[in-house]
Design a binder for these strands. Structure first.
Length: 586
DNA sequence: CCGGAAATAT
DNA sequence: TATATTTCCG
């Protein structure tokens, strides 16, 4: 099992460690457990059992808490009042509820909560929490920019950041009925909008690349065959030989194509001699791939002549079918087929028939199935990590509102100077990554990267009451924000013609220049006046328990490094025991 | 035909 | 470099 420290460093960026979170829950057990979990994720937690106290804390130390988490049922205050009051301070609020109630959750979201979780909350859900944090007036992003600049060569300092002036709405704001900026949302001002554009991949990329004697990669780089002798390369040590792209060779002027080819064949001979065992196989593959590339080149030139249609000739049966991209839509068909067929009958061939998609082959389906299964497995394993092992698939009720942190971040970046900003999204059915890159003089530096797991992966059960079974959650879409709208139809209508997010390497990315920004802290500035706080000093019965627990917890020292989940479980057991003891022994 | 795993492609 | 897909293999 994953060690805790690894877990944290994997999911929580260093600049988000120690994130100040204010946790409010009238239920003492819940409070302590949640606090412990949050701390496991490296966040810094302050707890209180009263909403009113929380409010005054938020007010007193302005900008101290970046995130507020509260039980949705507050004995001493109405949820809405709480939300509104806290909002004036611009703190993002995450609500938790022990029941799964779509209506209440929707209402909370409409009032500006940024996330609603259903208890029991798992570590898995907590690890991404930092993305909701409010970064205003904080240099965290700045730091991260600098960090990114350092170690990236001497010119790092030139990348002061990003300045933005163009006014564009975020791409996802087009999606009616599913966007953050919905009626009732207090959040972002769209007028002064942000300038980041979503970089969409060209509709039909590949296919029409170069068509010389060499494969496309060979044209751009020099290709050589090496014998894998590098000890560092464990994985490849098995292989007899492998093709490596040699950028340096490209630069050397006197290395002509011809020479290269000669070198290649020479090396080939060498490897042949040294590696008799797999030689035949290797050679076979090589020849085949050569053949393929020739075929492909032939094909694409034909296509180019005819008129650049990206589509392949599906008719001539022998054609090597093009690489399948499992975009959300296709994946959806896939999962639908599986749920229709049931687990037993869900085998590659039947799935393929059920999907009824012309261009894909059974073996491609099989391959996807293989990955699908492994992903499901991974998710199940992850669930096991959660505190309450009895919990269901997922407790996430609302999806994370991704644009929000991005906007916040970029607003900060705006203040840093000039540059070209490049936001892009990489997405597959299982997860999405958002990158903000800063490019200057051909150098690109990753300023920020965020990962958003696509929720509700499992095909058979709906993870969220808002999400139809089998539906793949897509970032930025709020399921059923408009209750009359079918998420699926919205999704499909919006994305059917899109290359549906499969951006990848730098060659696909476009950057655009921007300068000057009005956006700045519009988000931040939205709050100023605050009503009086009802500072209630009354100590509830829980306070004493809490104190004791806190002291004891310190003794237990569960936060020490290298802590494992097992240790944490132990702690919880111990905790409950302690609690019981307190209850029976007043 | 299948699923696991190596090999490739992006 | 890390993933996504394809291909190999028993």
């Amino acid at each position: 099992m994953e060690r805790m420290s690894d877990f944290v460093s994997k999911y929580v960026p260093s600049f988000a460690k120690g994130l100040e979170i204010l946790l409010i829950d009238h239920d003492a057990i819940s409070l302590v457990i949640m606090a412990a979990m949050l701390e496991q994720c490296s966040y810094k937690v302050t707890t209180t059992n009263q909403a009113s106290v929380a409010l005054s804390m938020i007010r007193e130390v302005e900008n101290h808490f970046r995130l507020v988490m509260a039980n949705i049922n507050m004995p001493d205050m109405d949820m809405l009042s709480f939300l509104r009051a806290s909002h004036q301070k611009g703190v993002p609020i995450i609500l938790m509820s022990s029941e799964r109630n779509a209506e209440v959750a929707d209402r909370a979201l409409a009032e500006g909560a940024c996330l609603v979780l259903t208890k029991p909350v798992t570590l898995d859900e907590l690890k991404h929490l930092w993305q909701h944090a409010c970064w205003k007036n904080v240099n965290l992003v700045e730091e991260s920019v600098q960090l990114n600049c350092q170690g990236k060569g001497t010119r790092g300092k030139e990348f002061g950041g990003i300045k933005i002036n163009e006014t564009t709405t975020l791409p996802w704001s087009h999606l009616e009925g599913n966007m953050i900026k919905q009626a009732g949302r207090v959040s972002r001002p769209h007028s002064g909008g942000i300038v980041i554009n979503l970089i969409q991949p060209p509709t039909e990329v590949k296919e029409t690349k170069e068509a010389d004697g060499l494969s496309s990669s060979a044209t751009e780089h020099n290709v050589r065959e090496h014998v894998a002798t590098d000890a560092k390369d464990k994985k490849r040590s098995k292989r007899k030989s492998c093709i490596m792209i040699d950028d340096q060779a490209k630069q050397s002027e006197n290395t002509s194509l011809e020479e290269l080819i000669t070198t290649e064949s020479k090396t080939k001979e060498g490897s042949k001699a040294k590696l008799p065992i797999r030689e035949r196989k290797g050679k076979k593959r090589e020849e085949r791939s050569k053949l393929n590339s020739e075929l492909e080149n032939f094909g694409s030139s034909m296509i180019t002549e005819k008129g650049k249609k990206g589509k392949r000739n599906t008719d001539s049966s022998k054609e090597k079918s093009s690489r399948v991209v499992w975009d959300p839509s296709l994946h959806h068909k896939f999962t639908t087929a599986i749920s229709v067929l049931g687990d037993k009958k869900a085998q590659p061939k039947t799935i393929q028939q059920e999907m009824n998609v012309p261009h894909i082959t059974t073996r491609q389906v099989a391959s996807h199935l293989q990955k699908y299964k492994s992903e499901v497995q991974k998710i199940q394993d992850n669930d096991t990590i959660s505190l309450m092992s009895t919990s269901k698939a997922s407790n996430i009720h609302a999806i994370t509102q991704f644009p929000s942190p991005l906007e916040r971040q970029s607003s900060l970046l705006c203040q840093k100077g000039h540059g070209k900003i490049d936001l892009r999204v990489t997405s597959n059915p299982w997860s999405s990554s958002y990158y903000i890159n800063n490019t200057k003089e051909g150098n690109t530096i990753q300023v920020a990267k965020m990962n958003l797991p696509n929720l509700s992966y499992a095909p058979s059960k709906a993870a969220s009451p808002c999400l139809p079974a089998g539906m793949v959650q897509f970032p930025g879409l709020r399921p059923q924000a408009n209750q009359n709208q079918d998420l699926a139809s919205v999704f499909n209508s919006k994305y059917q013609n899109e290359p549906s997010i499969r951006v990848g390497n730098a060659t696909n990315s476009k950057t655009f220049e921007t300068e000057g920004s009005q956006y700045i802290d519009a988000v931040v500035n939205q709050a100023t006046a605050v009503g009086p706080a009802d500072h209630d000093e009354t100590l509830s019965e829980y306070d004493d328990i809490l104190r004791i627990l806190e002291e004891d917890a310190e003794d237990f020292n569960y936060l020490s490094r290298g802590q494992t989940i097992d240790d944490f479980d132990k702690y919880c057991e111990w905790l409950e025991k302690t609690l019981d003891a307190k209850d029976n022994d007043p």
